[in-house]
Design a protein around this nucleic acid. Structure first.
Ligand SMILES: [Mn+2]
Ligand SMILES: [Mn+2]
Ligand SMILES: [Mn+2]
Ligand SMILES: [Mn+2]
Lengths: 217, 217
DNA sequence: ATAATTTTTTAGACAAGACTAAAATTATAG
DNA sequence: CTATAATTTTAGTCTTGTCTAAAAAATTAT
């Protein structure tokens, strides 16, 4: 697998979120910041290598093998992110681009040892689950903060859209994975919330509460 | 710099060992397991980018900038090798190929943090010096074991030709960086040696003693 | 000094991956 | 059900990095 092929497989894996739906040429091209014609080319190549099932004008779907390869790229990406944050003290907003490169290092032995070195983590620094070497993901029960009722407690379990600016916003306010959140009030008008996070009171908009995964306590 | 360009610069850096001599097209091609015509192509490209000074039919020489870039690839290669051996418990015969990939990861911040994480090592697992971020190398005073006189002591400081098979041979006999070596006898006929390494007696051929760097004690 | 040999370069081709412009197909709207 | 719009594919071009075969230059030997 070349780097480009791996990136296409990973993009398909992430676009067909959890389930294994078909992915359209345009969606794929958009995700990879390339043109639909390039995506078509690649899908045909991946079809010939039986990594995807591609039907002209109908989009493509990962084959079991393509799906497995994609899961291992994601596994590597997230393990490296853990390494960068836990061992090299990077901030969670700094690691994605570097992991984007590291995920393509080829050495099954390396992945295994890295996993052990990191203590076999189950989630990456943004709370996203790390697939195991078979591609299985341990489902963690989490909901969006915006769905929490007033006067309830929960724990921050992940970030939905791990945009750099948003990650910076959160860490600047010292909000992080594992933070204890108490919802005090929810404004019916704009659904903004008053919450206490680790003893500090914050007023957060709907946009923000829709981007934070929590586990009720 | 693309990966191929980086590999050419690194190869030139290593071929012009220490000094900054001119490198021939054929030598470069051989080192990179490619054809001389490909090397010519690349040298012309690198000349246009002023990474090397290339003269037709006369070979090429690294420019100060090309030399610096090359040194940083070597720096990354060796730092990653330290990481793999020290942190992930790889054997010193298993790390070169993986480092060959890792050396191309682009992030100045990453290199700096990795260096600190590893305790700013001065040599890699084979005893080769690690250039600093300016490209400077701390010269370590070392000679070949074959040049040691009988009835002298020395410490193993490095391996000259870090061939996988040779590295395996050494570690299988528990001979490693820092091992204390006492030369008991040197056969005048074939220059084979009887040595004690860490309390154990070994008979070693000239070929082997010419491949081990030591520092006299 | 000339001939033979070796080294190096040029010319032309190819594969991977991307792009643009045009054609084909599918989806949507009236 | 047809006309228009949107999506997708094809055809042709480009860049990077490689190769082979042939030409040119430099070396070595006679
Ligand atoms: Mn990421
Ligand atoms: Mn990637
Ligand atoms: Mn190495
Ligand atoms: Mn390399």
């Amino acid at each position: 697998m070349t780097r480009a092929e791996e990136n296409y497989l990973k993009a398909m894996y992430q676009l067909s979120a959890g389930k294994n739906q078909r992915v359209s040429t345009t969606a794929l091209a958009e995700r990879l910041e390339t043109k639909p014609s390039s995506a078509t080319d690649m899908l045909q190549k991946l079809h010939d290598k039986s990594m995807v099932k591609y039907t002209r004008y109908k989009g493509a779907q990962l084959s079991p093998e393509g799906r497995h390869i994609a899961s291992q790229i994601v596994r590597k990406h997230r393990l490296w992110e853990v390494f960068l944050v836990e061992k090299l003290a990077f901030g969670w907003d700094q690691v994605h681009d570097i992991a984007e490169q590291l995920e393509h290092i080829k050495s099954p032995d390396l992945v295994e040892r890295l996993d052990v070195f990191l203590g076999c983590p189950k989630v990456d620094p943004h709370g996203d689950p790390i697939p195991d070497d078979k591609g299985n993901i341990e489902q963690i029960n989490k909901i969006l903060l915006c769905e929490q009722e007033p006067n309830s407690r929960c724990v921050l379990m992940g970030i939905k859209d791990t945009d750099d600016a948003f990650l910076k916003y959160l860490s600047q306010k010292n909000i992080k994975l594992g933070s204890l959140i108490t919802v005090l009030d929810k404004e019916p008008f704009d659904e903004s919330m008053t919450v206490v996070i680790d003893q500090k009171t914050h007023f957060i908009s709907k946009i923000i509460s829709t981007n934070i995964y929590v586990q009720p306590r």
